[in-house]
Simulated scan of single mutants.
Amino acid sequence: MEIAPFDLERWFAEVEHDADIMLAESGVRPLEASRFDTDPGELGYVIPTAGDPDFRADVGALHERTVEETIFTCGTQEANLLAFLALVDSHAVVVTPTYGSLTALPESFAEVTTVPLAEPDWTLDSDAVADAILPDTDVVVINNPNNPTGRYHDEAAMRAVYDVCADNGTYLLCDEVYRLLAEEPQPPVASFGRYGVSTAGVSKSFGLAGLRFGWLCGPPAVVSAAENWKDYTTISPPAFGQHVARQAFDRRDELLSENRELAAEHRAIVADFLADHGLGWSAPDCGVNAFIEVPDGFAGGESFCRSVVKEESVVLAPGEAFNQPEWFRIGYGLPRAELETGLARLDAFLARHA
């Protein structure tokens, strides 16, 4: 088994530590630990290792799934890995651009066909997905709301894709880690029916990335297979992560309201900045990410981002990490002062290179 380097994470590992401003962070600014009870008691394994049954039942209910159809993981990343281990054998279809692991992981197991979102609006074309599905396609993979574009594919398009999958006996796996940042979240894919699988966690929408806490909801056979694989990965979710995530989940109306307001305000700030500079973008409608066109005069996203981090100590994400070299990703979920400082430095950079 071989897996490609995770280009986005390798880029961050290279430049993030020494930079002043991280303007490519994909989540909402971290919440203070002081807002929660941080004493979980003994730091042993979580028992049962699938996660606290009462908490799993509550998370599952939001996906119209039972406690047996819900498993807790070490972040959404592990949830996705377990889903692929459980599902992928022959062929997968992945809608792109997307978070790198959603392509690289299935490519390490099987053949993968990618289906691009339709530009310029980055819309989901259910007919294109249908055309890519083969008789032996195990799973179709969609990240909704989308990272890196920030676009939220509408329910009609998602259900159209699900119907095609179900007719073929193919699972639809949706990474929904940004879903709860929507003012009116769409129904999760796990609620669509037998072939729907949802993964998510508290890293992005809740601003609690450090907890490394996520979940997978889906049909019993998929969850059972994922649990079997989890015995060989992390065994159980983190005790500390589950302890704080339970509190955040119980207070989700309060916390999500704060984060939605922050995301909306910061989205407007970035929109005004780009309009002033005449730069096109993906016009995000959910989450805290956006794709921005690389300005003239640069060979591509990496060239642009390397110049920005060298001259202004501001980290952006090159589009090459998403196989889109004419774009770069910005993250606007960071604290307001950092966002404003980062944009001011980007403004100075663009002025010098006009």
Rank of each mutant, 00 (worst) to 15 (best):
E2A: 13
E2Q: 12
A4W: 12
D7T: 10
L8R: 09
R10C: 09
W11C: 00
E14L: 12
H17L: 11
A19K: 14
D20T: 13
D20P: 01
I21N: 00
M22F: 14
M22K: 14
G27N: 10
R29K: 08
P30T: 10
E32I: 10
A33V: 15
S34W: 11
P40S: 14
Y45K: 13
Y45F: 15
V46M: 11
T49Y: 04
A50V: 09
D54M: 15
D54Q: 13
D54A: 15
F55G: 02
R56D: 06
D58E: 15
H63K: 00
H63F: 01
E68D: 14
E69V: 13
T76F: 09
Q77E: 04
N80Q: 14
L81D: 02
L81A: 02
A83M: 03
L85C: 15
L87R: 02
V88N: 05
S90H: 11
A92R: 01
V95M: 09
S101M: 12
T113C: 06
T113N: 07
P116M: 06
P116H: 09
P116W: 05
L117E: 07
L117C: 06
P120S: 02
W122S: 02
D125S: 13
D125G: 11
D127L: 08
A130R: 04
D131I: 07
A132E: 11
L134H: 14
N143H: 15
N147F: 15
P148A: 13
R151A: 06
Y152R: 07
R159V: 00
E176A: 05
Y178W: 05
A182Q: 07
P185N: 08
Q186H: 13
P188H: 03
P188K: 02
A190W: 01
S191P: 08
F192G: 00
G193L: 01
Y195L: 00
S198Y: 01
S203I: 04
K204Y: 04
S205I: 04
G207F: 04
L208K: 05
A209V: 02
R212D: 14
R212H: 12
F213P: 00
F213N: 00
F213G: 00
G214C: 04
P220T: 15
N228K: 13
K230L: 07
T233V: 14
T234I: 01
P238H: 14
Q242M: 11
V244G: 02
R246Y: 07
Q247K: 10
E254L: 09
E258K: 04
N259D: 06
A264L: 13
A264R: 15
E265P: 08
R267H: 15
R267N: 11
A268W: 03
F273T: 01
L274V: 05
W281I: 04
S282Q: 08
C286V: 08
E293N: 07
V294Q: 12
D296R: 12
E302R: 11
F304S: 08
F304T: 03
E312P: 10
S313C: 11
V315Y: 10
V315A: 11
L316E: 00
A317N: 11
E320Y: 03
A321K: 04
N323A: 12
N323R: 15
P325N: 04
E326G: 14
R329A: 07
G331C: 06
Y332C: 02
Y332H: 06
L339N: 08
L339K: 08
L339R: 07
T341C: 09
R345Q: 12
H353C: 03
